[in-house]
């Protein structure tokens, strides 16, 4: 499976993260998104006329839209990441997959503006981002009151992976994560999963490894 990938793209990171968590091997094809704008070049537009990445190619199959790619990876390799057959759970997975699109436009838009100098109404993007974070925070509080640690179930699903990257990288767009305790606990639970990988802007949880014994040279 070949992923057209940009290391700084949270949407591409969703796919890399999902693959890492489910043990799927990806062949990464780096795209010069910044500063080269290669995603808007003829070769990639031929694969995805929307001019966006990620794009996943598996044999003759070409998939775009990160949520669809997450579902594809999970269905192939680890069905427990999909919704089970309970109606509420199925609906909640869809709810947060749809919601993740709003994170992309709001927090993602603010991040592109603040970091990579893309145009946009930064005040509006940040305000929309804060509204979305408050919704997620409230959703996670309710889940925890129902005894569930993740957005759709008591186990992580594709919906968590769809929401996590833009939320974790909100500060890149000038939106603080300080006011959201439930998001902090959820983010920590995801970052502690076996096989979790980071992207630039999300630091390693160094506490997951014990403090090393350090040999001193010429101190």
């Amino acid at each position: 499976m070949k992923l057209y990938d940009y290391i700084l793209s949270p949407s591409c990171y969703k796919v890399r993260l999902m693959a890492a968590l489910t043990g799927v091997k990806l062949d990464l094809q780096p795209v010069d998104f910044h500063p080269g704008l290669e995603h808007r070049g003829p070769e990639l537009l031929a694969l995805n006329p929307a001019g966006s990445i990620p794009i996943l190619k598996d044999g003759d199959l070409i998939l775009t839209e990160s949520s669809a790619i997450l579902v594809y990876l999970a269905a192939k390799a680890a069905a427990e990441w999909l919704a089970g057959d309970k109606p509420e759970e199925a609906a909640r997975v869809q709810q947060w997959l749809s919601f993740s699109g709003r994170l992309t436009t709001s927090l993602g838009g603010a991040r592109l503006h603040e970091m990579l100098l893309r145009p946009g109404d930064i005040d509006a993007l940040q305000a929309q981002g804060i509204s979305a974070l408050r919704e997620l925070e409230a959703g996670l509080v309710e889940q925890s009151l129902r005894g569930r640690r993740f957005v759709a179930a008591d186990r992580p699903t594709v919906a968590d992976i769809a929401c996590f990257p833009y939320v974790a990288l909100a500060p890149d767009g000038g939106v603080s994560l300080d006011p959201y305790p439930a998001i902090r606990l959820w983010s920590r639970a995801l970052r502690s999963l076996d096989g979790f990988i980071e992207m630039p802007g999300i630091h390693r949880l160094h506490e997951l490894k014990p403090e090393p014994l350090i040999e001193t040279g010429e101190a």
Binding site: Y6, I7, M115, G201
Partner: peptide, 22 residues
Amino acid sequence: TSMTDLIHFQQTIFLQDRSILE
């Protein structure tokens, strides 16, 4: 190494620093 890989390596490093600097 492809030019894109070289760019991405350096962008990775710098973006890791950015969250410290801010």
